[in-house]
Design a protein around this nucleic acid. Structure first.
Lengths: 228, 228
DNA sequence: CGAATTCTTGCACAGCGTGCAACAAGATGT
DNA sequence: ACATCTTGTTGCACGCTGTGCAAGAATTCG
């Protein structure tokens, strides 16, 4: 019994008008279920804290059986990484739309900074901070970045062709993601009590740190953004 | 009943003459037990493959109860990261011995390349490759690198003083570790059937990739090492 | 509508991770 | 050497995890 399914028609109409891709009922139900589970997990994590709830509770809240939960995610923490996955997937997609003749690092920087503007960032900060006190969640998030790294390397290989060695590609992408991760961590660490535009603050950090990476690290430039 | 403890005397003598730090029996037993567990886990992983054995099997092989295993490690995969932890700890220690007036990146590069020469690398490659087919082990390893990142940031902060922002530090260390990780992955991927000196091959990769990072990535240099 | 496909669900089961209390081994002081 | 305190080990119990399997329900297809 899908709790989600009650809204199936409405959602289909909305999604269809958006994508103009008439997706079947099966596929749509799976998308909805996945969403419902992820939302339930995030809600729970935000309310009672990460690691303080069971898979059963997520399943109940999502209107799904325990077994079905495990058909979609391997663990409770995995359900909390859909936001991270989504962000990185979107960044990759945006990157794919960049002009091929543009300098590589300009494309990379723009891909990430522009992605920041589209994504709802409200939950990202909280999720990031949770990882500080929850090793399992941290691992899940690290895995999420790792999976994205593989996809991005593939996308980059398509752009650079066979010129670049595998080592160069993985080192480059790994560094870019490490810097982005550092920027998001730093951004998430500052308390977001309605001070300025959060999205812009993140964008500035990403820009700063990726520029630093492009030009080579050097101790003289200690970075424009500093924290107490 | 420690199986390890049978050798307690001999080990103590050896260790004491090495370190000149007379460590108590308690502490020494813990070190031995930890070693025994880790060795048992790695042996099992190498023989039957990762994820194909239980904690009980590790405990039995280490001559320790199941409960004691969990006093030392949180999971079977955690016991497989002691090598990675050791490598990164050693690198940090070597880095700490570098002259303060040396250019930062020279110290970093030398710290890693020299660490490669001291560490027994036989198991590192195998452990790295295992992670490809075992998500849990991959997560554990990623976590290991993450923990090291924190320690290294701290060590670097001590060297750079308060000049460097937290964002700069984490981005720098994260990139360095990502590059090193990429080098080790690339190195581990090639089959090590007695072709040349494995240690040197790894060292070359680390040197290449960290130099690239220091000078800034640029698509013209596609990296000296290429794979089929 | 009937058949084929695919998803959900309940069940069962081995294994995980931890709190707890009893016990053993090492450390400490006289 | 002995009594005592501290610290580490062990077995037990218990709830939760993750997965294979088969039955049933929903969707798709002809």
């Amino acid at each position: 019994m899908h709790a989600v399914q009650e809204f199936a028609y409405a959602v289909i109409v909305l999604e269809t008008t958006d994508d103009a891709v008439p997706v079947g009922r099966r596929e749509q139900n799976k998308i909805d279920t996945r969403r419902a589970i992820a939302d339930a997990a995030i809600d729970l994590a935000l309310s009672v804290g990460p690691g303080s709830f069971t898979v059963d509770q997520i399943a109940v809240r999502a209107g799904v059986s325990r077994r079905t939960f495990f058909n979609y995610f391997h663990s409770a923490e995995d359900a909390l990484t859909v936001r991270t996955d989504g962000f990185l997937d979107l960044a990759l997609e945006v990157f794919g739309r960049m002009p091929q003749d543009e300098p590589l690092f300009d494309s990379i920087i723009r891909a990430f900074t522009e992605t920041t503007r589209m994504e709802g960032l409200s939950q990202h900060g909280a999720l990031f901070r949770m990882a500080d006190s929850n090793p399992d969640l941290l691992r899940a998030q690290l895995h999420s970045w790792e999976r994205a790294e593989v996809r991005i390397v593939e996308g980059l290989r398509r752009r650079l062709g066979a010129d670049a060695s595998e080592l160069y590609l993985t080192a480059l992408v790994g560094s870019v993601l490490s810097c982005t991760k550092a920027a998001m961590r730093d951004w998430a660490a500052v308390s977001h009590d309605s001070t300025g535009n959060p999205g812009q603050e993140l964008e500035e950090r990403i820009l700063a740190v990726l520029t630093m990476l492009r030009d080579g690290f050097s101790p003289r430039t200690t970075g424009p953004v500093s924290r107490a």
